[in-house]
Write a protein that binds this DNA or RNA. Structure first.
Length: 570
RNA sequence: GGGCCUGUAGCAUAGUCUGGAUAAUGCGGCGGCCUUCUAAGCCGCAGACCGUGGGUUCAAAUCCCAUCGGGCUCGCCA
C-alpha cells in the first residue's frame, strides 16, 4: 500500500530494532508486510522467514513480536505464525484522510498509444468499441499517473477492402449520398461493403474489378481517386462523430495512404547490411530464429511492399514525431490478440534494425468480442454496430427513467439516459480482463444493476443527494472524527486508489479500475445504509458528510479514468 | 505439429505477477427491508474436488512439469 508506506517502514524499523539478529533490511521486511483480507488487522506479517533465521518456532516468535513491538500508531497482536497490526484509528485517521487526496507528480515522460486504427470501409462495431475504450482508458490511467500521453490513430484508408465498398457504390450507388438517404455517413459506406460481399458471392468477376480498381487507385486515376476521397470522407466523418460521442480525441492521425509507399529504403538498407536476405523468388525476408519467431517477408518477390514495410516506417516516424526530446517511455499499440505473432515479429524486426533499441514498443493485446452465435463477420453484416447499440440502450434507459420519474423534461430525459447508457456500455466493455474474449449478449450484457456503471453512478448520486439535504457548507473545513466502525474501512479503501493507478500504469489492466469502482461503491452503499447522516447529532453528521464527500471524490476520479460521467440526480 | 492466451459455484468474473490465515463479487435461486437521507439500493441463506495428474514448499487457485478442453496464430493479407 503506497500511501501506508510510512507506517509499514516504521514497523519494519521497529522489528529490526527489537530483533537485531534478523538479517533482512527495512525494505525487505516492508515487502513482507501486507494488508490482510479479513479482520486479521490493518497490516500483517508472517514470521516464517524470521523463525528460520533465528531458529525459533514461528508461533513462539510471533508472540515475541507481540510483546516487543510497541508503536504509538498501532497495536500488535500475534495469531499463530502471523503478527497483525491494528491501527490506533482515532489517532491516525485524520492523517490518513489527508493522504487520500494524493496527486501524482508530473513524470516528465511521454507515452504514445495507437488505437483504434479502423478501416474506412465500414462503421465501428463493438470490436472497435472494445479497442477504443481500452486504449483511451489506458491513456487516462497514464495521464492520472503523471505521464504526458499522446493518442494516435492510424487510419487504414487504402487497400483492397476499401475498394470493395467503392466498387459497390460505383455500380449501385446511383449518386446517392448519406444526406439524400438520411444515413450516418460511415453507415452509408458500410452498406456498400456488405452489398459488395453479397454480390461477389454470385459474381466472382467482381473480384477482378476490385483488383483493377486498386491498381487504378495506385496510378492516381482521377475518377477512382475522387470516388475514394468522397467515400473516405464519409467514412471518417461518421467515425469522428462516434469518437466525439465517446469523448475520444486524437493528438495525431496517420493515414495509411500517405505512408504505405515508405519503408522500402529501410528494408533494402537492411538487406545490404545482411540483416535481411533474398530468397530464390526474390522476396526480402528477415530471419527471427533468435527471437523464436517465424521469419517474415518484408518485401514481396515482385518488389512491392507489404503492411509490415510501412509499419516499420511508421514506427520510425512516431519516434521522430514524439521522441525528439528523448522523453518517450513507451509506444503502445492497442491491437487485438489475433495480431500477436505479427506484432512480436514487428517489434523484433524494429530491434534488429536498431529503430527500437530500447524496446519501447508494446502490444496492448485484447481478446475478441464474440456474439452468442459466434464471431462477428463484417462482410456478412453479422455485427453489432456501436452507434446502433448506444441508441438501443438509450431507449431502454429512457423507459427505466420514465418509470421512476414520469414528469422528466425531454431535455433532462435525454441527458440522463445518455450519461447512464454510456456508463453501462463503457463499464461492461472494460470490466473484463482485456486478454479474455467476451461474449456480448445484448440481453445479458447491458444491465443497470449489479456490477455496472450505473450502480456506481447511483452510489454517487445518492451521496450527492445526502450532502445537498444536509445543507452543510465548507465541507473541507470540517474536523473529522471517527463515528462508527465502518469509517476506518472506508478510509482504507480510499487509500487503495493510488495503488490501483500505480499498478494499472504498469500492466495496463484497466479492469482493475473497474473492480475498484465496484468495491468502493459497495462500501459507500453499505456505509450510508448502516449509518444515517441527516438528523444525527451535528458533529456526527459533519464527520460523515466529510467522509462521504471524500469517498465520492475518489469514486468520481476513478470513474473519470474510464470516462464515465456522474450525475447529481439519477 | 510449433508458439501465445485461457479453464475458479448453475452462469459471468476477481484473486495468479509478488505463495500465507475462512477463495471474493455480480447475475440467477430462496428469504427479508420502502411511515426517516432515491429499492438502479441494503441485509441474510444455499451454492466451489480453483480442468486433471504429479512436483517444489512449513504453506499452492497462485510457482514448476506433464496432460486434457476452449480461443488466436504460424514467410510474400491488412
Amino acid at each position: 500500500m503506497y500511501l501506508l508506506n510510512y507506517y509499514i517502514d516504521e514497523i519494519s524499523k521497529e522489528i529490526i530494532k527489537q530483533f537485531p539478529n534478523i538479517k533482512s533490511n527495512v525494505e525487505e521486511i516492508s515487502s513482507l508486510i501486507d494488508t490482510p483480507k479479513n479482520n486479521y488487522g490493518d497490516l500483517a506479517i508472517p514470521v516464517f522467514k524470521f523463525a528460520k533465521e533465528l531458529n525459533k518456532n514461528p508461533n513462539d516468535l510471533s508472540i515475541e513480536f507481540q510483546e516487543k513491538i510497541n508503536l504509538d500508531f498501532c497495536k500488535t497482536q500475534a495469531v499463530g505464525p502471523f503478527v497483525n497490526f491494528f491501527f490506533e484509528k482515532e489517532k491516525i485517521s485524520n492523517e490518513l484522510l489527508k493522504k487520500v487526496d494524493f496527486k501524482f507528480e508530473n513524470k516528465n515522460k511521454r507515452i504514445i498509444i495507437e488505437f483504434p486504427s479502423p478501416n474506412t470501409n465500414k462503421p465501428l462495431h463493438i470490436g472497435h468499441l472494445r479497442n477504443m475504450l481500452l486504449g483511451n482508458s489506458v491513456a487516462n490511467v497514464l495521464e492520472e499517473n503523471g505521464y504526458e500521453v499522446k493518442r494516435l490513430d492510424l487510419i487504414n484508408d487504402r487497400g483492397v477492402h476499401i475498394c470493395k465498398s467503392m466498387l459497390a457504390y460505383q455500380k449501385w450507388g446511383n449518386n446517392k449520398t448519406p444526406e439524400s438517404e438520411n444515413k450516418k455517413s460511415d453507415h452509408f459506406v458500410g452498406d456498400f461493403y456488405v452489398k459488395y460481399a453479397k454480390e461477389s458471392d454470385e459474381d466472382p468477376k467482381l473480384e477482378e474489378e476490385v483488383n483493377q480498381m486498386l491498381i487504378d487507385w495506385e496510378n492516381q486515376n482521377k475518377e477512382v481517386i475522387d470516388l475514394w476521397e468522397k467515400m473516405n470522407n464519409w467514412a471518417i466523418n461518421g467515425m469522428n462523430e462516434t469518437f466525439k460521442r465517446f469523448n475520444i480525441k486524437f493528438d495525431k492521425e496517420y493515414r495509411e495512404s500517405q505512408i504505405y509507399k515508405f519503408g522500402k529504403e529501410i528494408i533494402i538498407d537492411a538487406y545490404e547490411k545482411e540483416i535481411a536476405y533474398k530468397d530464390e523468388s526474390g522476396a526480402l525476408i528477415i530471419n527471427l530464429d533468435e527471437y523464436k519467431l517465424p521469419e517474415k517477408v518484408l518485401i514481396r518477390s515482385n518488389g512491392t511492399s507489404i503492411y509490415v514495410t510501412q509499419d516499420i516506417f511508421l514506427c520510425k516516424k512516431k519516434f521522430e514525431d514524439f521522441d525528439n526530446d528523448s522523453k518517450l517511455e513507451k509506444s503502445i499499440y492497442c491491437i487485438g490478440n489475433e495480431q500477436e505473432t505479427y506484432l512480436q515479429q514487428l517489434f523484433a524486426i524494429l530491434e534488429k534494425l536498431s529503430i527500437d533499441k530500447d524496446k519501447k514498443c508494446y502490444h496492448l493485446s485484447y481478446g475478441m468480442v464474440e456474439l452468442p452465435d459466434g464471431n462477428m463477420k463484417s462482410r456478412q453484416g453479422n455485427v453489432i454496430d456501436t452507434d446502433n447499440l448506444i441508441e438501443e440502450i438509450k431507449e431502454i434507459e429512457k423507459k427505466e427513467l420514465l418509470q421512476r420519474y414520469s414528469d422528466l423534461s425531454s431535455e433532462e430525459l435525454d441527458k440522463r439516459s445518455e450519461t447512464i447508457s454510456m456508463s453501462a456500455i463503457r463499464f461492461f466493455m472494460l470490466k473484463f480482463d482485456a486478454k479474455k474474449n467476451i461474449v456480448f449478449d445484448k440481453n445479458e450484457s447491458l444491465r443497470f444493476d449489479g456490477e455496472t456503471g450505473p450502480y456506481a453512478q447511483y452510489t454517487y448520486s445518492r451521496i450527492r443527494s445526502i450532502i445537498k439535504k444536509s445543507e452543510i457548507k465548507n465541507i473541507d473545513k470540517i474536523i473529522f472524527k471517527i463515528t462508527t466502525e465502518n469509517d476506518f474501512d472506508l478510509i482504507k479503501k480510499l487509500l487503495e486508489y493510488t495503488d490501483v493507478i500505480i499498478r494499472t500504469s504498469k500492466d495496463y489492466n484497466v479492469a482493475r479500475v473497474a473492480h475498484y469502482i465496484i468495491e468502493l461503491s459497495q462500501m459507500i452503499n453499505e456505509y450510508y445504509t448502516k449509518n444515517k447522516v441527516i438528523g444525527e447529532e451535528k458533529n456526527t453528521m459533519e464527520s460523515r458528510i466529510f467522509l462521504l464527500n471524500k469517498s465520492i471524490s475518489i469514486l468520481k476520479r476513478a470513474l473519470k479514468v474510464l470516462d464515465i460521467d456522474v450525475l447529481d440526480v439519477m
